[in-house]
Structure formats: C-alpha cells, structure tokens
C-alpha cells in the first residue's frame, strides 16, 4: 500500500508543483494512518442503500432532450454543432 503522489495524480489527471507534492504527501500519509485503525472484516458485502423492483423502473418513453443550441451553451469550444477538443 505504498502511496505515490505523482502516480495517483496521474490517475486523477493533475499536475503538481514540488511544493504541492510535499504538502499532499504529508497530509495523505497522515490520513492513511488514521484510516488504518479500522479493523479488517471477513465479510465485506457492500451495503446498498435501497432496492427497486423491476416493475417500478422508468418506462421507455422519450422525453427531456434539449435543443443542440442548449447542449452546447456551456461548451468552452464548439464548432459546427460539436464539442471540440
């Protein structure tokens, strides 16, 4: 369980200054120490908040689509109706 700021930053799509790396490294290691006090458990069935019946799911009826003008309204860059990267 070796924490590596740069590698995790890569996964999360961040670039860090040296200062940030040092700062985060310290903070995160402290939090990991904190987390390590939680006892291990044998059964780890994830608790799911609630259940829904198949019959209660959404009906397959079209609704709610936007005009493409609205779709692109917040786009930082757009051209000919597309988002541009």
């Amino acid at each position: 369980m070796a924490f590596d700021v740069l590698r995790v930053g890569e996964l999360a799509r961040f670039e860090f200054t040296e200062e940030e790396v040092k700062k985060f490294d310290g903070h995160i290691k402290e939090m990991l120490r904190m987390i390590s006090i939680i006892p291990e458990v044998l059964e780890t069935e994830a608790m799911v908040a609630n259940k829904v019946r198949l019959s209660d799911l959404r009906e397959d009826v079209p609704q709610g689509s936007w005009d493409s003008f609205d779709v692109l309204a917040n786009a930082p860059k757009k051209k000919s109706g597309f988002f541009v990267v």
């Binding site: 369980m1 700021v5 987390i35 939680i38 458990v41 780890t44 608790m47």
Partner: peptide
C-alpha cells in the same frame, strides 16, 4: 487524490466495502 488512491485496484484494498460494512 485520497479517493483515487483508495479506490484504485493498483493500490489494493477493499476500502469502500469495508467502510460500508
């Protein structure tokens, strides 16, 4: 960063499941 670390397969550990337990 902490969340990415805790959920990544690379760094192992079923943290979230344990937490839900």
């Amino acid at each position: 960063i902490l969340g990415t670390f805790l959920s990544s397969a690379e760094f192992g550990g079923a943290y979230r499941k344990k937490a839900f337990y």
